[in-house]
Design a protein around this nucleic acid. Structure first.
Length: 392
DNA sequence: TTATATT
């Protein structure tokens, strides 16, 4: 398309097959940059690959982008354990959010790995794409793009392709299928050890009718230069599982679906950790800045850090048990051990207990957050364990 | 036949 159209319709650059477009072949774009959330977004990385296929970008009218929302984003490839609050916190750092939803399995409550963020201001939506698309969180590289208008016609448009020549590249795969419609995503599965193609892949079209046409045109056909025909069929719907798998998933899924008020601070810290793990730097969500009051300065050097950081919890009720300690400290990070100290004769809690956490940062934020926390009618005292004797 | 792309 012309440069004039490109300026008028920035949405058209996303998921585009046109090789001059920086979003061509999104999955192959390297994401080496470290975004600075406090600075204006850098320009999107250019695509430097060879240019051999023709420009087949849709016109604005054909793509329907004139009516597309400029504020609503779809976020794909989210880490499995990322919560809706974390999603909102991350994207809220760009601008005011009108609504935010993490899509979950209706039955198990498990995240499906994608969500929607709707901004108030289209400028913020564009900024979020430029700033957060390609952000690496844990093992994932998230993708941020404009959401297409919700429609039944764009569902079930994912194809499974097998029997591909082992030498076929992702670009060649897209080239083969692009004659049937607009490709949203493509992927060729590779052997994890050797990195060589397994001859199977996925193609997601914009519309189901395009996928149907591709099946008609390409199933049992030989790609140019290939010796064997390929198989093209609709991909399995990932949500169809056995009841046993569902039960197993339910059993493994922690109680994260309906976070209580206490969890919010922990979630902000978890998001900070996600970013720290990705970049090794402190973000604006740094624990030093949580609510602007819980400074970590002045905390005594804790007793020892042999197997973790031991935390002293005081003013527990006589009927307190280990589970309450897990519940309180677990959201802040890795907890390896909890213990409620009980009277030998009555077996009632003597009013204190210990929690061991693996990581100093997480322990420090847990202490800063939970010290003074009201549990029932008691106000807890929480600190790193010291060697001195506590006077009851 | 992936990790999970339309609320």
């Amino acid at each position: 398309f012309s440069s004039q159209k490109r300026q008028l319709n920035p949405a058209l650059k996303r998921n585009c097959l046109c090789e001059e477009c920086p979003f061509f072949n999104w999955t192959q774009v390297p994401f080496a940059r470290v975004p600075d959330l406090n600075s204006p977004p850098p320009p999107p990385p250019p695509f430097n690959g060879p240019s051999t296929i023709s420009n087949n970008c849709s016109s604005p009218v054909e793509s329907g982008s004139i009516e597309d929302s400029k504020t609503n984003l779809i976020v794909n490839y989210l880490p499995q354990n990322m919560t809706q609050e974390e999603l909102k916190s991350l994207f809220g750092s760009i601008g005011e959010i009108e609504s935010c939803k993490l899509v979950r399995d209706k039955i198990t409550g498990q995240s499906l790995g994608y969500g929607f963020v709707n901004y108030v201001d289209p400028k913020d939506a564009e900024k979020a794409i430029n700033t957060l698309n390609g952000l690496r969180l844990q093992t994932k590289t998230i993708k941020v793009s404009y959401a297409r208008p919700s429609s039944a016609s764009i569902r079930d448009a994912n194809l499974y392709v097998s029997g591909l020549p082992k030498t076929m590249t992702q670009k060649e795969l897209e080239q083969l299928f692009s004659q049937y419609g607009r490709i949203i995503t493509s992927r060729i599965l590779v052997d994890q050890v050797t990195g060589v193609s397994r001859g199977v892949g996925f193609i997601r079209f914009d519309r189901r009718v395009e996928a149907e046409e591709a099946i008609k045109g390409l199933n049992c056909q030989k790609p140019p230069g290939a010796t064997e025909p390929i198989t093209v069929k609709f991909a399995n719907n990932p949500s169809q599982k056995t009841s046993q798998a569902l039960l197993s998933q339910l059993y493994q899924s922690p109680n994260r679906r309906y976070p209580g008020p206490l969890a919010q601070q922990a979630q902000r810290f978890r998001l900070d950790n996600l970013l720290n793990m990705a970049y090794g730097v402190k973000s604006r969500f740094s624990p030093m800045a949580i609510d602007g009051v819980t400074s970590l300065a002045g905390i005594n050097i804790p007793g020892h850090a042999g197997t973790g950081w031991c935390i002293f919890v005081y003013n527990l009720a006589p009927d307190a048990d280990e589970s309450i300690l897990w519940q309180m400290f677990g959201p802040f990070g890795a907890v390896t051990n909890v213990k409620v100290i009980r009277d030998f004769n009555t077996n009632k809690c003597k009013g204190f207990g210990f929690v061991t956490m693996t990581n100093y940062d997480e322990a420090a934020v847990a202490i800063a957050s939970l010290n003074g926390y009201r549990l029932g009618d008691r106000v807890l005292q929480v600190s790193f364990k010291t060697n001195k004797t506590h006077k009851a």
